[in-house]
Simulated scan of single mutants.
Amino acid sequence: MQEFASVAVQPRRRSNAAPRRVLIVSDAAPHRNGVGAYYQDLMHHLGPWVEDIDIISPAIVDGQWQGGWMFPLPGDATQKFCVPNLLRLRQQMEAFAPDVVVIPTPGLFGMFGARYGRQMGARVLVGFHTWYEKLTELYWNRVQGSLTRGYFEVSNRFIFRNADVVLANSDEMVGIAERIGAAQAALMGTPVSPLFLQRTPPRAPTAVRSVLFAGRLAAEKNLEGLLEAARALPQLRFSVAGDGPQRELIETAAQELPNLDYIGWLDREGLLAAMDAHDALILPSHVESFGTIALEAMARQRLVIVSDACGIAEWSELASALLVKSADEDVASVLRRATQLSEFEVAASARQARQAVVQHNQANLSLWLDFITGVS
């Protein structure tokens, strides 16, 4: 089977419309979470096909958040709610003179970025990545949850009113966007970092002996189920990478379980190395709009296991290369299924995953170019 030395991402088609100046205005710091990573990767892929592309967002420099007043996000002090300098935000947007403004988040950067973009006559595209209202059930009490849901309902409606198109990465999220008030909602794919695509992946695994979880250590990720699986399957080696409000839970379990390692938060290079060092990646989430980490592991030619709550499982061309945990199946059970696969089945699934990601990435680039130029 061919090993992929490099992958040149080309759109399947390109609009004849003139190149655009594209500005992303986001509340998410680059690479700090899935949304931040999404738009850094998208910028790389779109760069050769537009006149100019840039991003305005908070940043993390030497471990310190920058970009306005910062407040810990309720329920997760590792994330920040950022209050931008609105005058400076408008000046930065006017200086860039965008034809297209992309809004990925419902915070204050997103709300005012959408409004200013509309006032400047730019085409406004909104990425609807997370249904925060659903997460309130996991993080906050009834009073806090009610206030938080109220904020996101108002914020999303405001942003959607200023949007030409709202893009979501699953059919469920498209439906939610339409119910919230999006005049036009459509499905978008997810880009993959060139690092994961272009660097030669290791040989496909032939058995599942080691399992990696990487992501935010939070209630929606079903980490309790993962720890139960580690206790039930001592023959497997488990590694957990990431940070978040449940970090102490993982650290305590890592001290108790000889087959569980906590390896902390990883940058992109470290994450790639961790994926390559494991046979499988697992994402057993209760709530997951898509699951970019699963797509990245597929690009590294690993066996990938996700719950049916992950939006990536709704994409038929990707789901065919995934091992999907059903709602009535626990994490240990799906991992037992993975260990019972033959050498051929494990290797074939990993190779198919790599090929599916390459095709998905190309199709997504074409889709974004169509929405940017107004063809779709």
Rank of each mutant, 00 (worst) to 15 (best):
Asp276Val: 07
Leu135Thr: 02
Asp99Lys: 04
Arg351Ala: 10
Ile282Cys: 03
Gln184Trp: 12
Val192Ala: 15
Leu167Asp: 00
Leu233Phe: 11
Pro19Glu: 05
Phe71Arg: 14
Gly36Ala: 08
Val22Ser: 03
Val208Lys: 00
Ser289Gln: 07
Thr373Asp: 13
Pro30Trp: 04
Glu345Val: 07
Ala229Lys: 01
Ser326Met: 11
Asp243Glu: 15
Gln340Arg: 13
Asp52His: 14
Pro245Glu: 10
Tyr139Asp: 10
Tyr151Cys: 06
Gln40Arg: 11
Gly113Tyr: 08
Gln66Thr: 15
Arg12Lys: 13
Val375Phe: 02
Ser366Met: 07
Ile60Asn: 00
Leu223His: 05
Pro19Tyr: 09
Thr292Glu: 12
Gly181Tyr: 06
Glu251Asp: 15
Pro11Val: 04
Met70Lys: 09
Glu256Phe: 09
Ala204Asn: 00
Val211Tyr: 06
Ala319Cys: 09
His129Ile: 02
Asp328Pro: 08
Ile250Gly: 02
Ala294Ser: 09
Asn33Pro: 07
Asp171Lys: 11
Ala163Thr: 03
Val240Lys: 01
Val287Ile: 14
Leu187Ala: 07
Pro202Leu: 10
Tyr39Leu: 12
Gly127Val: 01
Ala327Phe: 11
Ser366Arg: 06
His360Leu: 07
Asp328Tyr: 12
Gly113Leu: 01
Leu281Gly: 02
Leu271Pro: 02
Asn364Tyr: 10
Met43Cys: 13
Asn141Ile: 08
Ile312His: 00
Asn156Asp: 15
Asp330His: 11
Gln92Met: 14
Ala277Phe: 06
Gly189Thr: 04
Asp52Asn: 13
Asn361Ala: 11
His44Ser: 13
Ala59Asn: 13
Ala356Gln: 04
Ala363Gly: 09
Asp41Thr: 12
Ser289Ile: 04
Pro104Trp: 00
Thr105Leu: 05
Glu224Ile: 12
Glu220His: 06
Ala353Tyr: 08
Ser6Ala: 11
Pro201Tyr: 08
Ser349Met: 12
Gln301Val: 05
Val9Gln: 05
Thr206Asn: 08
Gln64Leu: 12
Met1Ile: 10
Met120Tyr: 10
Ala327Tyr: 11
Val304Met: 04
Gly215Val: 03
Ala18Gly: 09
Tyr38Gly: 01
Ala313Thr: 02
Ile312Val: 14
Gln359Pro: 06
Val334Ile: 14
Ala28Asp: 10
Ala122Ser: 15
